[in-house]
Every structure is written in C-alpha cells, then in structure tokens.
C-alpha cells in the first residue's frame, strides 16, 4: 500500500528550481530515505510533503490526502521532526513533550517516548541546558509522540556522535517494527545504507536513482574499490595505464581505483610502485557504496 505519492513536484525560489519534477512513492511500513548533498532540495521536498510549504506544480498525496488542500487531515496523522528547529528553551523535556502530545488526537505516553529516546534522566531539565545531541533526540521524540502513521525526520542524526547515531537508528527501527512508515532525509551515506529499506538519491531537485541500497550499488558497480592514500601516488598518470583498472577517481585526500579483478590490480600496482621507486605501505579495499553511486551519477561527493 502506497502512503506517500509524489509526482512531478516542482518548487521555485525566484529563478532557482529547488525541486524540479521530482517523483517518488513510499510504501506502508518501509523506512524510506532521501539521500543527497546539502541544497539538493531534500528539505524543500520534505516540507511540501508534510504540508508546511506550498508547491508550484505537481501532485502530492499523503495517506491519500493532498496536504496542501487538507493540511489538518494530514497533520493529525503524521509526526514531524524539522531540521534545525528549536523548541521552547525554558520548558523542561517533559513539559515540551506534554505540550506537543496535546496537539495530537492519539499521542504516545510521554514517559514511554522519553524512554525510547534515552531522555528519562533529562525529563526535568530545561531545553536550554541540553546538549546538541539531547536536543536532537528531543526533536525526534516530538515527531514520535504524535503516534502518527508516518514519521517524518529531516536529517535526524545531524550533530550526533557515532554512538548516539546508532542509538537513534535503533529507535527508528523500533518505529518500523511498530508498523510505522518512516520518511527521512540524510546526507550520511552510512545512514541511508544501514537504515533505509529504499533510498532516493536526490541532486538538483531531481531523483537521480531510486531503489534498495544494494540494488543501487549493484546496478552501478560490479567492481571493487581500491583506495590509495599515499600522497606520492596523487595524480599519478601511470595509474590510468593499469590494464585491470576500469576507472581512476582522484579525490581530495585519496585516489580510488575500480577493478573487477582485485588480484591482478594489486600485482600491477606492486610493479608500478617498484618502477616509481616508492613503497606501497597503505591502501584500503572496499565494496562500492552509495557514496560511489552518487559520485558516479553526479560527479560530486555527497558530503565533504
């Protein structure tokens, strides 16, 4: 069952097309991610779908309802966390959640929501005293307490350390287990790859690829990636002459060689460094990931 349906969505700010003919659909119960760099149009799309912004063209249906025409009908059935939105600084965590719970017809219990996001020990702390990570968790808690059928999270793990990020992923997976649909945006490749059932890669307001993370990767890469970090090998033209290498990508801090035959490439590489008179003392081998897919599709990296 489709719970979000977006067709040819367009939104302009002056001459700038923030969203340019974007289409996607989200099925009930899945964790759907919009992956893309900052400024790709993720947040604009997000805010149009959640009924905050008006669109210039296209169709949007959330739970079968147009959020622009019947905002109240949509907003009572979804929970939203907005990027960089603060809450009332003088209220405590518990007061804040009670306040937002009061806006929804059938909210989750405040206590349970705090427990899910590790906020119990902070329940009586004022928001102004919380750390960045705690505030971020509170923002997600506000979305979750709605008990909405779809939970919308805009960059939910920005500013969190890796451990806190993993904890939050746990809370998001719990939502999926509880039968909720989760729609999130992120510019963390890892988040999209580990958390999302399906991912839409967004660039310049368009969907450039859509599918499960594994589908996206195998559709674009059969090769392995070999990453060279030695400065001596930077921009080395002879790397392009290696016969087993299909592609050489020079990035700021390392060089990526793509190869379907890892053994052959390593042999060729050893020979090459010998003739160059340097030692090969550091390289990494990995499978392609969504970052590579993005790089291949757009020529740019998602995060810097």
């Amino acid at each position: 069952m489709t719970v979000i349906e977006v067709k040819n969505l367009t939104k302009k700010y002056g001459n700038l097309k923030a969203v340019d003919g974007l289409s996607l659909s989200v099925a009930k119960g899945e964790i759907f991610g919009m992956l893309g760099p900052n400024g790709a149009g993720k947040s604009t799309t997000f805010e149009i779908i959640t009924g905050i912004l008006r669109r210039d063209a296209g169709d949007v249906k959330v739970l079968g309802v147009d959020p622009e025409k019947q905002p109240a009908a949509v907003k009572t059935r979804i929970g939203v966390q907005l990027q960089a939105a603060q809450t009332f600084s003088k209220l405590t965590v518990e007061e804040t959640l009670k306040l937002f719970a009061g806006f929804y017809p059938n909210p989750l219990p405040v206590e349970e929501t705090m427990a899910r996001l590790d906020l119990l020990e902070k329940k009586n702390s004022r928001v102004e005293t919380l750390s960045g990570g705690q505030r971020q968790r509170l923002a997600v808690a506000i979305a979750i307490i709605s008990n909405g059928e779809i939970i919308f999270l805009d960059e939910p793990t920005v500013g969190l350390d890796p451990q806190a990020r993993r904890n939050l992923w746990g809370a998001i997976l719990e939502l999926k287990d509880a039968g909720k649909t989760v729609f999130l945006t992120t510019h963390f490749m890892e988040e999209a790859q580990n958390l999302c059932d399906r991912v839409a890669i967004i660039d310049y307001g368009r969907v450039v690829a859509l599918g499960t993370p594994q589908e996206l990767i195998s559709a674009h890469f059969q090769e392995m990636s070999l990453e060279l970090v030695q400065p001596e090998l930077r921009n080395e033209p002879k790397l392009r002459e290696l016969t087993s290498v299909t592609e050489v990508v020079q990035l700021n801090d390392h060089t990526v060689l793509r190869t379907p035959n890892l053994t052959a490439t390593i042999q060729e590489l050893s020979a090459l460094v010998n003739t160059l008179g340097i030692k090969l003392d550091d390289f990494r081998i990995r499978q392609a990931n969504l970052e590579d897919v993005f790089l291949k599709l757009t020529g740019r990296r998602i995060s810097q």
Binding site: T50, G51, I52, A72, K75, T76, V80, L82, A84, A85, Q86, T87, F88, F100, F103, Y104, P105, I142, S146
Partner: peptide, 14 residues
C-alpha cells in the same frame, strides 16, 4: 528564527 513557528506549523495546531 529558531524555527519554532515552523515546527508548530507542522503540527495539527491551527
């Protein structure tokens, strides 16, 4: 500026 108004706008509150 702190986007609280926007967040409230995302809730069913008129």
């Amino acid at each position: 500026v702190t986007r609280i108004l926007k967040l409230l706008g995302a809730t069913p509150l008129p």
